[in-house]
Structures are given as structure tokens and as C-alpha cells.
């Protein structure tokens, strides 16, 4: 009796080992394991926080205390009783609407200049990309504040041209947002790199044929380069518009929303609500409304796509 049991157990072990081996050798196992770093990261840093923030958005949660369920109250207050939220949304939309097209135009212009290989092209590409790395940093934000101060570089340069100015760029509600837009446009590097790659993809014989037909540089740009770049422009537009809506550092470091909340980005208002006013539940609701806004905006961009974006399959 005992012997039989033992041998059955032996057989079981062997079978388990075999199954484990088979499991390890299976293709899907390897696939999952290779994808694991992403899956873990996605779950821990995106999925769980998002689910939590969705829950918090229905609670009164002061961070230091536990969340208390309040139903849709946060959303009701946000949409009906918080003029500052709408103000900040207006500022954010204005910022994105102005800075993104300007930045793309800048990026395209510089990419056109850098597309032609010359001995210094490599240097210039790096030099023009630099602001994209530096521009989001705290150091540059602080520098920016000094530059636009009443006794800063901008007024000094104006003085050199005979325009004596003690104008407060940051202190005037009409101009403060433009200092932030200027900083944002200056960070055109990553869009430029994408444009550069796309420009190089355009077949040279198109230009050859065009110049044989007598088309000048401007016409070539308008009828060949630009239409063939529209898919890239579209890609850049969507990516940059989203990041425009999520802008934070410039406002947080340079203006803090001043003056008169004319530079208050929604992201900064949200951050202050959560961590300065200790209203994390309300801030979570804000985040979800923002997600919706950005989703709708991206959706609209996609709808317009078929009217102006070149699609070789169609």
C-alpha cells in the first residue's frame, strides 16, 4: 500500500516538473515575461493611481485624513460653482491654441533649414534641440523670470535700441501669459526632430520633376513638402496640443498664476487644490474633467484629419 503511494507521488513530481518545464518553454510565457516590465509599470504607476483618483473624485479627501464619500458633489461644485476653474481652463486653452501652432511653425521652419546637409548641420541640430531639454527645467524658468523683470535683460535690450522701458512684463495681465508662450515656443526641438526625419523621407525625384516643370523653392515647399508632411504635422499637433494642456512648470515657477490669475494653468490650480488647500478629492474631480476635455479636443482633431491630412492609401 505504502509503496504504491510513494511511486504515485514520484510520478506526480515528475509530471509537475514536466508541466513546469512545458509552461516555461511555452511561447506565450516568454512573451508575457518580456512584457512584464511594462505591465508592472503600467499597473503600478498608471492603472492603480487612475482608479484611485477616480474613487477620490467622489470623496472629500484632505490627504491627511481618510476619504469620505460625497457622491458627485465635487463635480457639481466644479462645473457650477468654481469660476476659477473656468478661468484657468480659459487660460490653458488660450495658451495651447497660441503656443502649439507657433511652436510647430517654428519647428518646421528650422527643420527646413537644417534638412540640407552641411558641415555644421550636426552642431546646429544639437544646438536647436537644446532648449527642449532645458526649457522645462526649473533653472530656465527662474532665468525667464529674471529676463522679463522690470530691471531684466529684455528691458535692457529694448533700452539699447533707444526704447527706455521699465515695463513689467510679468506684472501686467495683458503680457504675462505671452512670456510663458514665448518660453513654450522656444522648446520646439522635439517637433523639429520629427519634422526633420519626415522631410528626409520625401523622395528626391518629386523635387527633380517639379524643378524641371519650373517650380521655384516656395512652390516646391507648398505643393510637395507641405502636403507630404501633413501626417507628421498631424502627429506633432496632437502630441503638442496634449502637452500644451498639461503645461505646469512654466506657470508654477515663473508666475504662480499671477497677476489676477491671468496665467493660472488648470494643472497648477489642480496641484494647489490638492497639496496646498488639502482638497485632493476635489482636485481628482478636476483631473477627470481635464481628461475629458483633452479627450474631446483630441477627438475633434481626429475628425478634422480627413480634410487636410494626406493619406496615401486613399
Amino acid at each position: 500500500m505504502e509503496r504504491i503511494t510513494t511511486s504515485a507521488a514520484d510520478g506526480g513530481d515528475a509530471r509537475t516538473a514536466g508541466r513546469l518545464r512545458a509552461f516555461l518553454e511555452r511561447e506565450s510565457t516568454a512573451g508575457v515575461v518580456c512584457a512584464l516590465p511594462f505591465i508592472i509599470g503600467f499597473t503600478m504607476f498608471l492603472l492603480i493611481p487612475m482608479v484611485l483618483s477616480l474613487y477620490y473624485s467622489f470623496t472629500d479627501y484632505s490627504i491627511v485624513s481618510g476619504p469620505v464619500w460625497v457622491g458627485a458633489r465635487n463635480y457639481v461644485t466644479l462645473l457650477t460653482g468654481d469660476p476659477l476653474f473656468w478661468q484657468s481652463l480659459g487660460v490653458t486653452v488660450m495658451f495651447a491654441l497660441v503656443s502649439v501652432p507657433l511652436r510647430l511653425a517654428f519647428a518646421l521652419a528650422v527643420a527646413m533649414l537644417l534638412a540640407r546637409p552641411t558641415p555644421l548641420t550636426g552642431f546646429f541640430r544639437v544646438a536647436f534641440y537644446m532648449p527642449s531639454i532645458l526649457g522645462g527645467s526649473v533653472a530656465v524658468a527662474v532665468l525667464w523670470r529674471r529676463m522679463f523683470a522690470q530691471d531684466g535683460v529684455i528691458n535692457a535690450v529694448l533700452g539699447m535700441f533707444g526704447i527706455e522701458s521699465h515695463f513689467s512684463w510679468l506684472g501686467s495681465p495683458a503680457t504675462a501669459i505671452w512670456t510663458l508662450i514665448a518660453l513654450s515656443v522656444w522648446q520646439f526641438g522635439s517637433a523639429m526632430i520629427v519634422f526633420l526625419a519626415a522631410i528626409k523621407q520625401i523622395p528626391g525625384d518629386l523635387y527633380e520633376a517639379a524643378s524641371m516643370d519650373g517650380a521655384g523653392a516656395w512652390r516646391q515647399f507648398r505643393t510637395i513638402t507641405l502636403p507630404l508632411l501633413t501626417p507628421t504635422i498631424f502627429f506633432n499637433l496632437v502630441m503638442q496640443a496634449i502637452s500644451g494642456f498639461l503645461a505646469f512648470t512654466q506657470c508654477y515657477i515663473i508666475t504662480q498664476g499671477k497677476p489676477l490669475n491671468s496665467t493660472l494653468f488648470t494643472m497648477v490650480y489642480m496641484y494647489d487644490t490638492a497639496f496646498t488647500y488639502y482638497q485632493a478629492g476635489y482636485a481628482s474631480a478636476m483631473a477627470w474633467v481635464m481628461l475629458l476635455v483633452i479627450g474631446v479636443m483630441t477627438g475633434i482633431l481626429f475628425v478634422t484629419k480627413r480634410f487636410w491630412v494626406y493619406d496615401p492609401d486613399r
Binding site: R145, A149, Q150, S168, L170, G171, S172, A176, T255, K258, P259
Partner: peptide
Amino acid sequence: LDPTIFTE
């Protein structure tokens, strides 16, 4: 003081 100086 003018409020503009406080923005800097």
C-alpha cells in the same frame, strides 16, 4: 507699492 513688483 505697485502690485507688478510682487510678480517678480
